[in-house]
Nucleic acid binder design. Sequence first.
DNA 1: CTGAAAGCGCTAACAT
DNA 2: ATGTTAGCGCTTTCAG
Lengths: 339, 339
Amino acid sequence: MKKSKTTIRDIAGALSVTSSTVSRALNNHPAISDDTKQLVTAMARQMNYKPNRLAAALRSGKSMNIGVIVPMVERSIFAAIIRGIEEVVAQSGYGIIMCQTYDELRYEKRAFDTLFRSQVDGVIASATRSSGNIELYKSVIEEDIPLILFDRSIDELGVSSVVVDDFKGGYEATRHLIEQGCRKIVHFAGDLDIKIYQERLKGYKAALAEEGIKFEAHRVINCPSDIERGRKAAEQIILDNDIPDAIFSSSDFAALGALQVLKSKFKIPEDIAIVGFANEPFTSFVEPAMTTVNQHGRDMGRLAAKAFLDCVANRKGYVPRQIVLQPELIVRASSKKLN
Amino acid sequence: MKKSKTTIRDIAGALSVTSSTVSRALNNHPAISDDTKQLVTAMARQMNYKPNRLAAALRSGKSMNIGVIVPMVERSIFAAIIRGIEEVVAQSGYGIIMCQTYDELRYEKRAFDTLFRSQVDGVIASATRSSGNIELYKSVIEEDIPLILFDRSIDELGVSSVVVDDFKGGYEATRHLIEQGCRKIVHFAGDLDIKIYQERLKGYKAALAEEGIKFEAHRVINCPSDIERGRKAAEQIILDNDIPDAIFSSSDFAALGALQVLKSKFKIPEDIAIVGFANEPFTSFVEPAMTTVNQHGRDMGRLAAKAFLDCVANRKGYVPRQIVLQPELIVRASSKKLN
DNA sequence: CTGAAAGCGCTAACAT
DNA sequence: ATGTTAGCGCTTTCAG
């Protein structure tokens, strides 16, 4: 039953043609007669032929695989992005090698190692903290393989990227809070080594400034994207005497943690309004439903993938472009003061 | 700057040895002197050498990539499994090519295509609906590449698998409900083409039978794993006159949908208790917190990966084994009647 | 329209 | 401990 796998040479033998012909027929080369193509594909099926992409890749220099690097697939934004990427690249015959960094440099390094050794035709990645890893990305560029960044980009690299306007997201979230009458707005800042979190913070500051509300450094609390850390931060707030009237969190997870602890002692949103960031599915069904910022993950994935395809299509004349998606504030009960 | 990539031959040239020596040195072959290894690795780094896995794979017949097929990465159980797999196989130098089926045969087919063509050294997969795709899995076996199934296995295949005892999960969930005093227990059944959902249903029936509660077919409602479908099902229940005192849902998502609509009209859990399945993160923070069944995703992934490694280690003498994990009922507020 | 020939970069007997 | 040799399965000029 189990004989050595059929190769194009076997097919060629069975048909008394050469492997070149078979190869061309299989790849739908224009200079092959329809008759031959018919014969070859029929025989291929009959012999249960499975092309060996590795060999093709080695010879042609194209692996038809692209690497996708995300912090972690559990985050719905990244799952959505992967789906978006997959949708478009699959149509061009590409497979995806997915790597997760868990936001740690050593995993990020390993990811690049895996991808290089697999000879991927391109890398679509979201960078981790923006220090220490630039060399990694530069090495991709030096190897001359297309690199597209999404969500968290690295400007110095000058490659194509698809990001959401985090500044605007932070700005609108904060502005919305101010419009609800909030004045003492706490910001849960993410890792400020990462640009997107810097931007969200800047947006927050800009909105305050615009409304003439003085920025107070002690209202910015370092709080990673994690429910438990959100709880801790909220507990700290309660201990302090200076209770805010709103929280704008740079992540839905931290916002949720805060919501959980605060709602036992305060009315949400009347006493304290809460806004998160990322539009994780759970935001729509926690109580009260949480206001958040939608980042259009699937679109981001699709656009990144298209950028990659573009880049491959005109290898030489490709000009990188920065695509900036508009975030969308989704207002829900957690921030609607009815005054 | 950008010259053609360095190969082992280049290194060999620079060192006046042969490429075999370089190859062996790089692979830490025992029969190479430490001096030479030192020299070679130093030169490799200096010349910025990046091994071409494709070539190695073509020659050695091992791609050092394994394929992982899941329905969709958004489901936290699958994200957890992937993480478990990755943890284990990465240590042995394997990369992961991830494919999603979205529970549709055509995507499942495409996944296998991608994996075959990439010459993966193994496939770790969760099957979709258990009809129509068996041929796909058989073809993997015929190609003689290790296949491990998880979560949703296919018994006829006789390969190693790691699953959770869905029967027991269904049984315990239902039993718990009965212990709370519930008698009219509705079951939201998943796609009964898929074995895990059949098992959960059987467990439900078994628990009823054990307690002498008559099984009533109309209490089994077809309801896929989807919030919206759960809402619809709950709305239908309200329209009917025969209000149940509990719902055991085969998925957390459907359970959540039901919870959302029911809690406006009924007291949960006093009037209607609710139990889900899968321990999605959101179950712990919806209100009331939802009782559910934990499937130990990360462990499942780890075990599946270990099975794969085992299988590779003793290719000939490998005996497939079925690993069955014990589900864990996590009791939360949505099902605790305080009578 | 098809054939012949030459590898892609690496590994693995078999030598020495 | 290292060198020689022969490909893995496919693509791709260059001929005809």
